[in-house]
Design a protein around this nucleic acid. Sequence first.
DNA 1: AATCTAGGGTCAGAAAAATTGAGTCTATTA
DNA 2: TAATAGACTCAATTTTTCTGACCCTAGATT
Lengths: 288, 288
Amino acid sequence: MAVAPPKPKDLSLSALRAFEAAARLGGFAAAAEELGVSPGAVTAHVKALEDRLGAVLFQRDAKGVRLTALGQRVLPGLSEAFDHLAAASHHMQAEAAPQLVHIATLPAIAQFWLSPRLPELRRIAPEISVSITAMEAPPNLKRAPYDLCLFFGGSQGTALTEDVIFPVCAPSVAARLRSVADLADVPCLSDTAWSEDWALWLAAAQPEGGIAPRGPAYSLYALAVEEAVNGAGVLIGHEALVARHLAAGRLVAPFAERATTGRSLRLWSAPPAGPAARQVMRWLTESA
Amino acid sequence: MAVAPPKPKDLSLSALRAFEAAARLGGFAAAAEELGVSPGAVTAHVKALEDRLGAVLFQRDAKGVRLTALGQRVLPGLSEAFDHLAAASHHMQAEAAPQLVHIATLPAIAQFWLSPRLPELRRIAPEISVSITAMEAPPNLKRAPYDLCLFFGGSQGTALTEDVIFPVCAPSVAARLRSVADLADVPCLSDTAWSEDWALWLAAAQPEGGIAPRGPAYSLYALAVEEAVNGAGVLIGHEALVARHLAAGRLVAPFAERATTGRSLRLWSAPPAGPAARQVMRWLTESA
DNA sequence: AATCTAGGGTCAGAAAAATTGAGTCTATTA
DNA sequence: TAATAGACTCAATTTTTCTGACCCTAGATT
């Protein structure tokens, strides 16, 4: 009731952003991940916001957090506002550097599919700069500053090629393989994120079953490929990613059977895509 | 062209806000004022943003700054986004403390008009808390977190009373005044922000002219009122602000002539006004 | 039951950012 | 010819923010 403190400061933008991310993603840890900070920072921001408001936004318990009624009421408005802000920010960057195209993709795609195509793209469109950021999962395009995304699966954008898989190995290893059954006797390499690959292919190649491939799993597909090239075993290969090694003869496909994961290599863009992004998109589509 | 740095950080929210304010208000100094920081901070933020974008947003020269073409293209989107964010933030505070009403007003109005009415309001609606922030000019309601504004002039909202002015002084001083001409012999107090008041009143009271009131000007109306009560001279009084002193007999109006400044005491609200804000508004309107 | 795991909370110290404040510079105004 | 207004620079300082290591709880797993 008194003549109040001189400057009623606005709510902190960082705190609002932390709250919005935590509420939208359903947890402080996920919010910290998206914002690129530690969970403790998110905790602190949300707490500061709650103190400032004099009201509780989350109900905490040991297994996570849930929005309070108040939190649920204010979340939609905040999310919209941050969507607008992200769009404006993205627009700003696009206007400032119209010839720069940011692509988000899997590390393996970046290395084995995208990277080999860049020299040609640079030759055709030297005025365009491409920047590539590797990540495990497609980003939220409403927030993250990328122009194009290139990932397996989903249903967005256009499918470039089907995801076809089949075993590949160094020629020296192939010489020891006479039949699918021989796979039981060699290390079968795989990627931890694609642990179903062997089972998928075997279901197509040897429906009667009976083979349980064993071997190391790598958290980076590039490591598994490298090992396969070095003769460490048989890798379950994704066609789009091992095509160059096959063409160069560093890897061969010992069996003719091929399977599809049911997913595709897909390319999509963040609207509104500028001319440079559209050109890169068109070119990548054609090159597939 | 290389596989780029791991984390393409978003543009800093503070930097975006500083740029937006500077661009909208047409100057770094004005932006600093609105944001409640020093001009140097705004300079630094804008510079950081320009470096980050690799493009120039403002064209600087000695008399100020002008937006570049790039700046002009990105400003509208950013301003809209920050409008949304401010609205969401305001909504959040309103939801968290629905019984709290923030009022922005002139220091003099706060002290002499609003404050005396608060006890009665508290009696009638004890569940409502009122917080008052004094400032020299009406805030930008699209951004500042106030529910109600109460200022002289403008055309927003509803007019509570006309701004009527006339000389007032302590009774002891009044005893020495027989005619308007006697004003030449006493200190004529005024507020620096309302320096035209004496001339306005004299034009009405003594159209033939010939009187040039002299006396100290105060940067705070409250100081001038205090001096007048203490018998330091004759103050050109605003009816709404000196009514209590007149009623209590601490000040008297030595002359019957009254003039109007052509402005009114006006009350308006930031949409959407909540129930508490509307109730305070209704009550203030009726009490006028 | 014990153990494991996921998700949060807390805290002190450290790192980074923002801010200030004094001094400069340059056109415009008086 | 001052005086003024607006912006810039830079170093020092203050404030904010972040991290990293720890604890805690509840459900899932052994």
